[in-house]
Simulated scan of single mutants.
Amino acid sequence: MRLPILPLIALSAALALGGCGSGKSVTATNESVSGVAKKVADAGLKFNPGRWDSTMKFVKMDMEGMPPEAKAMMSKILGKDRTFATCLTKEEAEKPDAKFFGQADERCKYDSFAMGGGKIDAKMTCKAEQGMQTMTMQGNYTAESYQMTMSINGAGPQGKAMSMEMQLNAKHNGECTGKEEG
Protein backbone atom coordinates (compact mmCIF):
# COMPACT_ATOMS: atom_id res chain seq x y z
CA MET A 1 0.00 0.00 0.00
CA ARG A 2 1.35 3.44 -0.93
CA LEU A 3 0.90 6.01 1.81
CA PRO A 4 0.19 9.51 0.47
CA ILE A 5 2.08 11.30 3.26
CA LEU A 6 5.54 9.81 2.83
CA PRO A 7 6.88 12.87 0.94
CA LEU A 8 6.31 14.82 4.16
CA ILE A 9 9.04 12.79 5.85
CA ALA A 10 11.58 14.63 3.74
CA LEU A 11 10.03 17.89 4.86
CA SER A 12 10.42 17.16 8.55
CA ALA A 13 14.00 16.03 8.11
CA ALA A 14 14.86 19.18 6.20
CA LEU A 15 13.26 21.43 8.80
CA ALA A 16 15.08 19.84 11.66
CA LEU A 17 18.53 20.29 10.19
CA GLY A 18 18.76 23.92 11.25
CA GLY A 19 22.01 25.29 12.60
CA CYS A 20 22.78 25.52 16.25
CA GLY A 21 20.66 27.76 18.46
CA SER A 22 22.48 31.06 18.24
CA GLY A 23 19.46 33.13 19.19
CA LYS A 24 18.04 33.16 15.67
CA SER A 25 14.44 32.09 15.24
CA VAL A 26 11.62 31.97 12.73
CA THR A 27 7.89 32.07 13.35
CA ALA A 28 5.09 32.01 10.81
CA THR A 29 1.31 31.68 10.73
CA ASN A 30 -0.77 30.72 7.70
CA GLU A 31 2.36 30.72 5.53
CA SER A 32 3.30 28.96 2.30
CA VAL A 33 6.17 26.48 2.17
CA SER A 34 8.24 28.91 0.10
CA GLY A 35 7.41 31.72 2.54
CA VAL A 36 8.78 29.68 5.46
CA ALA A 37 11.85 28.71 3.42
CA LYS A 38 12.54 32.39 2.73
CA LYS A 39 12.10 33.32 6.40
CA VAL A 40 14.54 30.58 7.45
CA ALA A 41 17.09 31.76 4.88
CA ASP A 42 16.60 35.45 5.80
CA ALA A 43 17.03 34.66 9.51
CA GLY A 44 20.43 33.17 8.78
CA LEU A 45 19.56 29.75 10.18
CA LYS A 46 22.22 27.71 8.45
CA PHE A 47 22.08 24.05 7.63
CA ASN A 48 25.04 21.75 8.17
CA PRO A 49 26.09 20.27 4.80
CA GLY A 50 27.27 16.67 4.44
CA ARG A 51 25.99 13.20 5.18
CA TRP A 52 23.05 12.76 7.56
CA ASP A 53 22.31 9.28 8.88
CA SER A 54 18.67 8.97 9.91
CA THR A 55 16.44 6.46 11.67
CA MET A 56 12.68 6.50 11.20
CA LYS A 57 10.24 4.47 13.27
CA PHE A 58 6.45 4.20 12.89
CA VAL A 59 4.99 4.28 16.39
CA LYS A 60 1.28 4.27 15.55
CA MET A 61 -0.68 3.59 12.38
CA ASP A 62 -4.45 3.33 12.12
CA MET A 63 -6.73 3.44 9.09
CA GLU A 64 -10.50 3.16 9.13
CA GLY A 65 -11.82 -0.04 7.58
CA MET A 66 -8.42 -1.62 7.14
CA PRO A 67 -8.66 -5.31 6.18
CA PRO A 68 -7.14 -7.78 8.69
CA GLU A 69 -4.32 -8.78 6.31
CA ALA A 70 -3.31 -5.13 5.90
CA LYS A 71 -3.38 -4.64 9.69
CA ALA A 72 -1.13 -7.68 10.09
CA MET A 73 1.30 -6.28 7.51
CA MET A 74 1.39 -2.88 9.22
CA SER A 75 1.88 -4.39 12.67
CA LYS A 76 5.14 -5.87 11.36
CA ILE A 77 6.60 -2.43 10.63
CA LEU A 78 5.45 -0.71 13.84
CA GLY A 79 8.32 -0.09 16.21
CA LYS A 80 10.95 -1.23 13.70
CA ASP A 81 13.73 1.15 12.73
CA ARG A 82 14.30 2.07 9.09
CA THR A 83 17.67 3.68 8.47
CA PHE A 84 18.72 5.81 5.53
CA ALA A 85 21.35 8.40 4.64
CA THR A 86 20.96 11.68 2.78
CA CYS A 87 23.46 14.16 1.38
CA LEU A 88 22.93 17.87 1.93
CA THR A 89 25.14 19.84 -0.46
CA LYS A 90 26.80 23.12 0.50
CA GLU A 91 24.54 24.96 -1.98
CA GLU A 92 21.37 23.43 -0.52
CA ALA A 93 22.56 24.23 2.99
CA GLU A 94 23.23 27.89 2.22
CA LYS A 95 20.12 28.60 0.16
CA PRO A 96 17.26 26.25 1.06
CA ASP A 97 14.33 26.71 -1.32
CA ALA A 98 10.71 25.55 -1.14
CA LYS A 99 11.56 22.13 -2.64
CA PHE A 100 14.04 21.61 0.18
CA PHE A 101 11.15 21.98 2.62
CA GLY A 102 8.92 19.35 1.04
CA GLN A 103 5.85 19.35 -1.12
CA ALA A 104 4.85 22.09 -3.53
CA ASP A 105 3.24 25.27 -2.22
CA GLU A 106 -0.10 24.63 -3.87
CA ARG A 107 -0.56 21.43 -1.84
CA CYS A 108 0.67 22.42 1.63
CA LYS A 109 0.60 25.41 3.95
CA TYR A 110 1.90 26.00 7.45
CA ASP A 111 -0.86 26.79 9.91
CA SER A 112 1.95 27.57 12.35
CA PHE A 113 5.73 27.30 12.32
CA ALA A 114 8.25 28.08 15.06
CA MET A 115 11.95 27.24 14.89
CA GLY A 116 14.63 28.57 17.17
CA GLY A 117 16.59 27.94 20.32
CA GLY A 118 17.06 24.29 19.38
CA LYS A 119 13.33 23.56 19.13
CA ILE A 120 10.86 23.21 16.30
CA ASP A 121 7.08 23.17 16.52
CA ALA A 122 4.99 23.21 13.36
CA LYS A 123 1.54 22.37 12.05
CA MET A 124 0.97 21.93 8.33
CA THR A 125 -2.17 21.24 6.30
CA CYS A 126 -1.88 19.53 2.91
CA LYS A 127 -4.34 18.72 0.17
CA ALA A 128 -3.96 15.08 -0.80
CA GLU A 129 -5.78 13.13 -3.50
CA GLN A 130 -8.03 11.63 -0.80
CA GLY A 131 -8.70 14.89 1.07
CA MET A 132 -7.01 17.05 3.69
CA GLN A 133 -4.19 15.88 5.95
CA THR A 134 -2.77 17.66 8.97
CA MET A 135 0.76 17.08 10.16
CA THR A 136 2.25 18.26 13.43
CA MET A 137 5.97 18.20 14.13
CA GLN A 138 7.76 18.73 17.41
CA GLY A 139 11.40 18.20 18.11
CA ASN A 140 14.84 19.37 19.10
CA TYR A 141 17.86 20.10 16.95
CA THR A 142 21.49 21.08 17.04
CA ALA A 143 23.97 21.59 14.22
CA GLU A 144 24.90 17.90 14.53
CA SER A 145 21.65 16.05 15.30
CA TYR A 146 17.88 16.19 15.60
CA GLN A 147 14.99 14.29 17.14
CA MET A 148 11.48 14.76 15.76
CA THR A 149 8.02 13.34 16.44
CA MET A 150 5.43 13.71 13.69
CA SER A 151 1.72 13.01 13.80
CA ILE A 152 -0.37 12.83 10.66
CA ASN A 153 -4.17 12.80 10.65
CA GLY A 154 -6.66 13.05 7.84
CA ALA A 155 -7.99 11.20 4.86
CA GLY A 156 -6.22 8.06 3.74
CA PRO A 157 -6.93 5.70 0.84
CA GLN A 158 -10.54 5.91 -0.43
CA GLY A 159 -11.03 8.98 1.79
CA LYS A 160 -11.20 6.95 5.00
CA ALA A 161 -9.83 8.36 8.26
CA MET A 162 -6.21 7.61 9.03
CA SER A 163 -3.71 8.59 11.67
CA MET A 164 -0.08 7.79 12.20
CA GLU A 165 2.81 8.82 14.36
CA MET A 166 6.48 8.42 13.57
CA GLN A 167 9.79 9.36 15.11
CA LEU A 168 12.87 10.55 13.26
CA ASN A 169 16.35 10.78 14.68
CA ALA A 170 19.36 11.89 12.69
CA LYS A 171 23.01 12.63 13.15
CA HIS A 172 25.47 14.51 10.96
CA ASN A 173 28.13 12.05 9.86
CA GLY A 174 30.85 13.94 8.00
CA GLU A 175 31.22 14.39 4.27
CA CYS A 176 28.90 12.90 1.65
CA THR A 177 30.14 9.61 0.23
CA GLY A 178 28.02 9.45 -2.94
CA LYS A 179 26.15 6.43 -1.57
CA GLU A 180 23.38 8.41 0.12
CA GLU A 181 19.75 8.08 -0.95
CA GLY A 182 19.15 11.77 -1.58
Rank of each mutant, 00 (worst) to 15 (best):
Q133E: 11
L45N: 00
S151V: 12
A85K: 11
S25H: 08
D111Y: 03
A161M: 10
A28Q: 11
M162T: 07
M66C: 08
K90D: 15
M166N: 12
A155I: 04
A161V: 10
I120L: 13
I120S: 02
A93V: 01
K60C: 07
N30T: 03
Y146T: 00
M166L: 14
K119N: 13
R107M: 15
A114P: 11
S12A: 13
G23P: 07
G118F: 10
M135F: 01
K76M: 15
F58Q: 12
A85V: 08
C126Q: 06
K109P: 03
I9A: 10
E31F: 08
A41D: 13
S34N: 10
G131M: 03
S54P: 02
D42P: 09
K24W: 00
C176R: 00
M1V: 15
T149G: 00
T29Y: 12
E94G: 13
N169F: 00
M166F: 14
G131K: 01
A43G: 02
M166A: 11
P4L: 10
L168P: 04
V59W: 04
D42Y: 08
E129H: 09
G65E: 01
Q167F: 08
C20E: 14
A70W: 09
E31D: 09
K119T: 15
L45C: 03
M73R: 13
F47G: 08
Y110V: 08
G156K: 04
L6I: 14
K171F: 06
T125F: 11
Q158V: 13
P157A: 15
P49W: 01
D105A: 01
A143D: 14
A128L: 08
D121T: 11
S34Y: 07
G117T: 01
T83K: 15
A155W: 03
C176D: 02
E144C: 06
A70V: 09
A16Q: 06
C87V: 03
K119E: 07
M148K: 03
T177K: 05
G159Y: 04
M137T: 08
M124C: 06
A14Y: 09
E175H: 04
I120Q: 04
D121E: 13
S54N: 13
M164C: 08
D121N: 13
M164V: 02
A13E: 13
T83I: 11
E180C: 12
F101H: 02
G117P: 04
K160S: 05
L15G: 00
Y141P: 09
K71L: 14
G116P: 01
S12R: 09
P68C: 04
M150Y: 02
G23V: 00
V36E: 03
T55R: 12
R2K: 10
V26P: 01
S32K: 06
S151T: 15
S34W: 11
A41M: 13
A122I: 02
T29P: 13
K39D: 03
A98R: 08
K99A: 13
E165K: 12
